[in-house]
Amino acid sequence: MRNILFLLSIIAISILLLTSCETEITVDLPDPEPKIVVEGHVENGLPPYVILTKNQPFFGGLDLNNIGDYFIHGARIWVSDGTDSVKLVEYTRDILYALPDSVAIAIAAEFGLDIDSVEEFPDIAIYSVPFNKLFLGEVGKTYSLRVKVEGKTLTASTTIPPLVFFDSLFVVPHPNPDNDTLVRLKGRIKDPDLPGNYYRYFTKANSGSWLTDFGTVFDDAFINGQSFDIQIPKGTDLSEKDDVDFDPETYGFWNKTDTCYVRLASIDKPHYDFWRTLETERANQGSPFGSATVVLSNIYGKGGIGIWGGYGSSYSVYVPR
């Protein structure tokens, strides 16, 4: 509903495809300027973490088996909440060697990786709070980030906004009676009175992983202060973008027997802008009417892009009767 243009372009494309023809063309491009991609979050009750990766040429191969090559090691990273500050330490696969294979494999599965032993685990790096320090995200606080790596200094700042809870979760049957094993999940939410609330949600079915979707953020411009119902489509594994099934018959529906977990995160405006532009950019890919949307990063410093985002998360669950 947010994007009429998108719908129209689908319509137009389907008309055009009746007579269209596709040919591959080759594009010769110089490699892009190397950048540090920051993906870091701080959430209420959890320690902050940061991942640093490298950008790659658009027209190049990609092999997730070598995903370790994309991670950046040896960065110095500090997080501060204004009064207290912490220097993050780098956790690599070395710590997995201390764990039994079965645990390591389970952790790998969380990252979407299918491995048989710890040795196959990619050489990734995750920066977080040292084991011996207690530093957890708190609602209402502002967190600043400073990264020093490869001669670059990057900074960012984010907040954890107050939590908003679902009043209730409920399901409605699929409109087509033939699909009586599928249901649509809805949640009732009461938006706070003041405008300027932004949300992102994640879903999880049963014991699966937390998943996102193609449109995971919304704001209260339309619904400020109201109590309203939103549809909560079941998440999609975006790392397998090619296999996503757009059948409107099943897309976003939950199984009747699913235990549905929903995480509703309050986010601040720059954090919202990041996801909003990122999701628009993904949606516009391949549309003749779409334009190149530049993703709004909240990372400052030359050669840095990405997000440093705070989440004020509340968790709800719907258990089928």
Binding site: P32, P57, G112, L238, S239, L278, I307
Partner: peptide, 14 residues
Amino acid sequence: PVERYFIELGIVTG
């Protein structure tokens, strides 16, 4: 588009 990068293991285009 000249570059891509990962966010949440999904591909983003620059």
